[in-house]
């Protein structure tokens, strides 16, 4: 399946979606996007994913270190969600939404979108050596 079609389909239920980018880590390689005309327009989303999803330990001494898999940045005009794949440490989805839905709904729909992408593209990424 074409990655662009897959991301458009997977993100179809994300409320207020403005744009989304599928990213390969740690190279910060843009795989596919939805909502922008040019690939270069996704670059800020791609680089932000690479910044946030660099492995970091949990900053709390009483729990076992665990990787961060989701960042939600609340802006004045919208929300940016950075989701790391739970199945492949190399895959991330970055979505920008407006404020038309509440945070929890946006979070849940973004997680569902990534899960749908994993299901759709997982085998293809594995074939190309892009899955961990």
């Amino acid at each position: 399946m074409i990655a662009g079609d897959a991301i458009a389909r997977a993100c179809g239920d994300v409320p207020g979606l403005l744009r989304a980018a599928l990213v390969l880590l740690p190279e910060a390689f843009f795989l596919a996007g939805h909502g922008e005309a040019r690939a270069s327009d996704y670059e800020p989303l791609v680089r932000a994913a690479a910044r946030c999803l660099t492995p970091r330990a949990t900053p709390r001494g009483d729990v076992a270190p665990a990787p961060f898999v989701e960042y939600v940045l609340v802006l004045a005009h919208g929300v940016i969600v950075i989701e790391a794949s739970r199945q492949s440490s190399r895959l991330a989805l970055v979505l920008e939404c407006d404020h038309s839905a509440n945070l929890t709904l946006i979070q849940l729909s973004c997680r569902a979108a990534l899960a749908a992408l994993e299901a759709t593209l997982g085998r293809e990424l594995e074939t190309w050596g892009m899955a961990s």
Binding site: P44, L45, R47, A48, R51, C52, T58, V63, A64, A66, P67, F68, V69, E70, Y71, V72, L73, V74, L75, A76, I80, I82, R86
Partner: peptide
Amino acid sequence: AAHELGVHPRMALASTTT
């Protein structure tokens, strides 16, 4: 991340696998 995006977030929330 905010610098890369060129935005000034009001708030950010990060969650782990656990």
